[in-house]
Design a protein around this nucleic acid. Structure first.
Lengths: 251, 251
DNA sequence: CAATCCTTATTTGTATGATAATTTGGCCAG
DNA sequence: CTGGCCAAATTATCATACAAATAAGGATTG
């Protein structure tokens, strides 16, 4: 796409990862997620990347392997590295999600997340009510207590995240755990998406308590209902964007 | 775990991937997923892996980077590579899922998948009914037609998978697409989990047709109901294992 | 002209050896 | 006992070379 002599300059070093191959992977990953290299496109070859980043081929190759492992690329001899179709991207991977967030309309991102949360979290709560171990219940309970204590300070986001992650873990289904990443990202960055920071904190605590109590006494039905109400009534969420006609789909 | 001179011998070359670093990654990945190296354990260092597999350090490092990118490992200088906790594993990654399936009780795997499918697929169908593009509808429709044609032969698994994947794509939510891997794995290997191969093929086609029609005319409610019935009534699934008391959780 | 085979060029894959950077753990001094 | 300094182990990076795969074009032949 830009095989010229002075390509992107691809600003490195801005992201935190201390290792070079990590930085390179982040940079290339960001470029893919932001559409600089679209699915199907052939990336610059390894030698080019070396020049671009001033790194050794070893380092570049490790970065490429990282991206390949996340489903963004596929390399073949004599061809080079081609960007994989979107459905192969490992979007629930921590890094991929971060890159995705960096180059996406925040409201659209948030709407997509909430759409999935509304589907999953009530059922997750129900499963947790049925399958939780005592230890898992304790983890949920402790997170809730921390939420309550931290109520005064606005930094209740940490315990809040822990609460939802603990709930997810208590559902005891491996295929649900990947969503922790998504939930975490949504909750920790919520203030960036919604205008107000901690919306309706007075409703906030009781609703979480409702989930906790239902899970404690093993009532799937009540847990489902409580979790649903947390995501719909109180809103925590942005109800301005209709979940439906999100985007007419350019194609 | 086995730092002796004659370690695992870790049979390579059995899996298809032609590249060496791929084979090494697969072998180590399998060992992690099968519990040879548990979360928190320190893996052999790079030099050891080189001896074990008879590969160069370059190759071993690329394999390690691959596994790191999938969330199975984390490497630190002077420490080595440590197996990450399970919740960080990228279980919806194609490879990780394959390794997981290779070392798991098939019925437990299938039960977990169906549990998630019952949660998601009705809502996926509903979203598809609301958000599908004409092209996406056509893809669903074509997959269904292929299913019907292939009805005589038992190899309807291909079109069946395509049908569900097309439905998933039509939901138009990036955070749902990762489940395609899981659904694909479940459907293509179903005959290994259930005793009978294509259970109740007479119900099979009409139920899929019900989903298609609902999606076509944009009825979320009907689509949800049809998708749910496909997963509960007909059973496609194994109802012998109660979804609840799966496993008392050894901890 | 058409089809087939062969050569060649390009790109990734693997190997080797060396050096740098990081950090644990122990040693040593106060 | 405490603090800081030193050494060892391990990953991180670099440079170079060769191997393997394969796409593309050219030579050969029908």
């Amino acid at each position: 796409m830009n095989p010229g002599k002075s390509p992107h300059k691809a600003s490195l070093a801005k992201s935190a990862g201390s290792n070079l191959h990590r930085k390179v992977a982040q940079s290339i990953g960001n470029q893919i997620l932001s559409g600089v290299y679209a699915p199907g496109a052939i990336l610059p070859n390894e030698a080019d990347w070396c020049r671009i980043y001033g790194a050794s081929r070893t380092t570049v190759r490790e970065a490429v392997k990282t991206l390949t492992a996340k489903g963004l690329l596929k390399s073949r001899t004599k061809i080079g590295s081609r960007v994989e179709p979107r459905e192969n991207w490992n979007i629930l991977d921590r890094d991929v999600l971060a890159w995705h967030m960096a180059s996406m309309n925040p409201q659209e991102f948030f709407a997509s997340v909430q759409e999935v949360r509304k589907i999953l979290e009530p059922e997750v709560a129900a499963l947790a009510a049925l399958n939780r171990t005592p230890q898992q219940l304790r983890a949920i309970s402790e997170a809730f207590e921390d939420m309550r204590k931290a109520k005064a300070g606005l930094n209740s986001v940490g315990p809040d995240v822990r609460f939802h992650l603990a709930l997810l873990a208590a559902a005891n289904n491996v295929f649900l755990t990947p969503f922790g990443i998504m939930i975490e990202a949504a909750l920790t960055n919520m203030f960036e998406f919604t205008s107000t920071h901690n919306p309706e904190p007075d409703m906030f605590i009781p609703k979480h308590e409702g989930i906790l109590k239902a899970v404690k006494r093993g009532s799937a039905k009540a847990a489902r209902k409580a979790a649903l109400s947390l995501l719909t009534d109180t809103d925590h969420t942005i109800s301005r964007i209709p979940a439906k006609a999100k985007k007419p789909k350019k194609i």
